[in-house]
Design a protein around this nucleic acid. Sequence first.
DNA 1: AAATAAATCTACAACGTTTGCGGTGAGAAA
DNA 2: TTTCTCACCGCAAACGTTGTAGATTTATTT
Lengths: 330, 330
Amino acid sequence: MQQSTLKKLSEVLGISISTVSRALKDHPDISENTKTKVKELATALEYEPNNYAVQLRTRQSNVLGILVPSIDNFFYDSFIAAVEEDARLHGYSVMIMQSRDKAQLETSNLHLFRKNMVTGLFAAVSIETDDMAPFHKLEEFKIPVVFIDRVPEVEGYHKVCLADEDAARIAAEAIIEKKKKRVFALFGHPHLSISKIRHASLKDTLEKRSPKTKLDSVFLEGIAESERATIEALRSKPRPDVLFCMGDMHLIGVMHAVHKLKLRVPDDISVISISNGFIPTLYNPRVTYVETSGFKLGKLAFAQMLSCLRNDTTAEQVTLASMLVEGGSL
Amino acid sequence: MQQSTLKKLSEVLGISISTVSRALKDHPDISENTKTKVKELATALEYEPNNYAVQLRTRQSNVLGILVPSIDNFFYDSFIAAVEEDARLHGYSVMIMQSRDKAQLETSNLHLFRKNMVTGLFAAVSIETDDMAPFHKLEEFKIPVVFIDRVPEVEGYHKVCLADEDAARIAAEAIIEKKKKRVFALFGHPHLSISKIRHASLKDTLEKRSPKTKLDSVFLEGIAESERATIEALRSKPRPDVLFCMGDMHLIGVMHAVHKLKLRVPDDISVISISNGFIPTLYNPRVTYVETSGFKLGKLAFAQMLSCLRNDTTAEQVTLASMLVEGGSL
DNA sequence: AAATAAATCTACAACGTTTGCGGTGAGAAA
DNA sequence: TTTCTCACCGCAAACGTTGTAGATTTATTT
């Protein structure tokens, strides 16, 4: 089975290759008559432009890159799913890579993206990232980068992120509302701005609106670590009366700890989390959480990318509002 | 910023393009002397072969396609993560698409894969798929297809799947071991061979080894559906004494039902599931499950793909063994 | 009828690679 | 000297597409 090419079509119809090419693109130079003839034959022979030839010629790949720490993660998953959906609708394909939170892998992946001449890139920076040069290199090649979720702290980039400050503030308000006085809070890696922002916001809100509330924060990654830290915290006196989790992994660890110590939620201990929304519903009672939808973020990021690709909009930050979803854990 | 090209290198060194090309590939025709000179300049100028030109010329894309029902799914996630990892190690990139369990989307995605001339394709068929023609078309273009997890029932394809029969048998044996007598079992869409096989195996094993055990099976998809069906089953008399879940989504629904009816696991009711291993650990006690690792499946599938790409091995089926992981739910 | 304008179409050169084949020297064998 | 064998290298033709510039036909004007 052979691919149909412009050449083949042109030979069958006895016209030149360029005419065929233009006819398929509705170029005004071509008469309606030949246009229809060409198009008919094209569908009959299942002509498909050869992507690689097109890309070689036009230097336009129509592939969008996505770089996330890991694919097997609820949040990035739904983000990817959303982008993939919209991308296909707009005639783009998607190329996904994972940095596994290693700066070195991140760099080599960025390299691959460049090599494959992606049209644009969505990226969540890894934990280790502190040098933005590899990203900068992409921009030298006129490849727009839209940072998502974990965005660099410095100015001058397109950023689409969750309203991190809002989310933590909303959680803090819920905590205050329920008159909790001793908060044990788990945050992600201290290197990430997302951790810092959420921490600062939670702290500030509590301090301002409920100065008597005590806040005890830890910065760590992973389920096991969260469990360990929570158990320790829960054994201290006086025991915290509410556990705040910055992400799903923290929540899972926290819930393990709670179960291990045979505490009842919310009678013995309250729990609140920031989450995509899936994990909190697995527990009984469902965990109250501040929603941060990866799916919605994906939609938003794609829109931002489109405007980047069309006109060079100035670097700007877009944030996705979040809302409290009540479970029964607070 | 301009790309370095062979031409540029050749101009700097004053030698021909072909010599540069060959030197970079260690062609025996080229002297060691010029080879080193070329290579040095290449690294200095950060030469990177233009993928699209290479692909146009060689008709080899070095991109592997992955087609799964959905990306945001624990099992396929870890599968993808595994394949991506190995692929990168072998110089391949990965292109991921989701069928969303729609035959029509599946077909159009297959089309895209063909258009992008993927080197090979991993595919889990959608629920709706009954016509294998679109897949066949890929093979006409000499694109090997390795089916994974949800494989077609007919012969003549490369299949890498879980030991579905084994998994259900192991679960059945565990159930018998614990002397459970009334099994309520939830399976996926009846159209999928994976559901049929697991059901048949569970049924047969129970019938053969413990004829007195009663089995009540339902075939459905989704958390809410599972919950509804389970609640209904749990309200019937006599109540089942063990719940078998074919997948994570069933398990989640089942656990919702169990919580809603305020039943204690395993005292009031036992639970066993087939799973990737993540969800079962979220519950307390952890749910006993038969492990089916998407990650391992990915590794296995990639190996199979490699052998497909090298020598045309005959179409064969590879299965991944599974094992019981004890939680406290049985 | 000739000149001009408009409508269609074609030729050709890229894009960056790979590759078959032919060409150049230098030294060895005749 | 001539011929042959090498080791090394360059030419040029692809791959399938697009865009520029020019060629042809047809319609319109003078």
